[in-house]
Design a protein around this nucleic acid. Structure first.
Lengths: 145, 145
DNA sequence: CTCAATGCAAACTATTTGCATTCGA
DNA sequence: TCGAATGCAAATAGTTTGCATTGAG
């Protein structure tokens, strides 16, 4: 089941409404592999849809997260970001502190060790955050020489 | 070298000044194992030191992080937190999403796998964030029955 | 028709900053 | 003495909300 279908079914099930703004935002959101902040997406949408308000973009992204087709991220720069989720395996992120490049990584062994840690402390894990911050290869060359 | 000494040397080296407020804040900060937000520490200090301002507490905590005796944390609840660092091994956190309990965990195997991931993507890691969010054993019993 | 969604502006919250005054070295 | 630190208040920035109006079902 694709993300548009998931969203439509969520809207119907909750008695919400499927407006043209939501469809526009969803298309643009899914049409890029980027990790959008509300501001990013708002300005991108402005070009072709100058009527859509910032609050609508923000509320819609929250709604995407709520229905499971998006995940809210926080890379500590003061802006929430959202990424589209598909059925793929869970991934975490490498973030370049110089150029902002974001790379996704998958490491099942870490996921497994996390489970063991949680079990050891008798925690029932709901979600986690795992981000590695540093310099990507290009920036490392530029800066460290 | 203990944390007070590290701080004093940092202050001297940078040509800063060692005020009574900074000493008071440092003592209170080190005297508890908690993970303080600026607000937490400010209110705790108010009891015995009502003259110390919020901005001073905040600037001082930032200074602690800068000189390496504290680490700034962000558990996604909209408040920055600070924890005292000693020479112990690096640790990460389990956070109870119900009662706010924070437990520290050490897992060298995860640290090692992180290094491998970074190497694989040619990143030079400076720091990382790794937090497991869920229910502690007490809250799991209360909520899930 | 009814009630959810929108768009705007205003409110909110944690954080940061400007500045006159204080105080440590 | 002199510049860093303080304390207050005001500014900032991202996010959230109130409300009159619009529009989907």
């Amino acid at each position: 089941m694709d993300q548009v279908t998931i969203f439509n079914e969520y809207v119907r099930r909750k008695g919400l409404k499927n407006t043209s703004q939501r469809m526009t935002i969803l298309e643009t959101f899914l049409g890029s592999k980027l990790h959008f902040s509300t501001e990013d997406l708002y300005f991108r949408l402005r070009k072709n849809h100058p009527k859509i308000g910032y609050a609508t973009v923000h509320r819609t992204l929250k709604l995407f997260a709520e229905c499971g087709i998006a995940r809210e991220l926080d890379f500590g720069d003061g802006q929430a970001r959202f990424e589209a989720l598909n059925a793929d395996q869970h991934h975490d992120h490498l973030v370049c502190t110089n150029c902002g490049l974001i790379v996704e990584f998958i490491e099942p062994k870490i996921e497994e060790l996390q489970e063991q840690v949680a079990a050891q402390y008798d925690f029932k894990i709901e979600r986690h955050r795992h981000e590695l911050y540093g310099l990507c290869s290009k920036c490392a060359k530029l800066i460290d020489g």
